[in-house]
């Protein structure tokens, strides 16, 4: 039963990954990435890591990919802009990728040899994951979380600074409606107040008039 499940969901993960690259519309690429995440969660389950499997779904499929889908929708990234296909990139890219894959395969073969992976029959308890995170790997864990914090702070700072330069929204409005969706949208370079006019609905303030006027043009 377990090998069959492994091949089914491994296959789904691979098919999703290939579909992600092949699809023209970004929204379908994002959704196939969701499918990949789901299939990976099942593979984690097969390895007995229940907790990781569902965290994978909650965090990646349920939160991060939702934000991706959101941004794709807000930018209305429906038709991709064709770029000039670089011959040099193709000539160098494929061989380098092949080399990397061979290297990786060699590394894994050296590290794990031919020992088969055991699927099913054992279960990683949630407490064990906690022990590993907060005892064994406490320092890397905390450092990673600080890294995330820095990233978030930086994004908010960049968004706030650009807003001031554009003079789009006065400080009062921003504090008033300073919600993460807004910061997120602007960090990912949505024009200022593209959401503000209709979605966020800041309290009517005369200063923010120009921004609203511009938002009209950006609506779908």
């Amino acid at each position: 039963m377990h090998p069959a499940l492994f091949f089914i969901f491994g296959g789904i993960a691979l098919a999703g990954a290939i579909n992600l690259l092949v699809q023209r519309a970004p929204i379908y690429s994002a959704l196939s990435l969701v499918a990949v995440m789901g299939a990976l969660a099942v593979l984690f389950l097969l390895l007995g890591a229940e907790f990781i499997a569902f965290i994978q779904i909650i965090v990646y499929a349920g939160a991060i990919m939702v934000l991706f889908v959101f941004v794709i929708m807000l930018l209305n990234a429906d038709v991709p802009e064709p770029t000039r296909r670089s011959k040099v990139a193709q000539a160098i890219g494929y061989p380098v990728m092949a080399l990397l894959l061979v290297e990786l395969a060699g590394f894994f073969a050296a590290a794990f040899g031919a020992t088969p992976v055991r699927t099913g029959g054992y279960l990683v308890q949630v407490a064990a994951v906690g022990q590993a995170l907060f005892h064994e790997f406490l320092l890397p864990f905390e450092v990673t979380s600080v890294l995330f914090l820095v990233g978030v702070t930086g994004a908010v700072l960049l968004a706030a600074r650009r807003e001031e330069r554009h003079g789009a929204a006065p400080r009062a409005t921003r504090v008033h409606a300073g919600v993460p969706t807004r910061a997120m949208a602007e960090a990912l370079s949505v024009p200022p107040n593209a959401m503000g006019g209709a979605v966020i609905e800041p309290a009517p303030q005369p200063e923010s008039e120009p921004a609203h006027a511009r938002a009209q043009g950006d609506g779908r």
Binding site: I27, V34, E50, F51, F54, I55, I57, I58, A61, G62, A63, V66, V69, F70, M73, L123, V126, G219, R220
Partner: peptide, 29 residues
């Protein structure tokens, strides 16, 4: 299952796709 509550939260977090995709695919303001 051992982690029923986590399963519930995970599945519920996927519900948002129904709403988001419905609005976007309708192609209406």
């Amino acid at each position: 299952i051992n982690i029923g509550l986590l399963f519930l939260l995970g599945v519920m977090s996927l519900g948002v796709y129904g709403i988001v995709l419905a609005g976007w695919s309708s192609n209406s303001k």
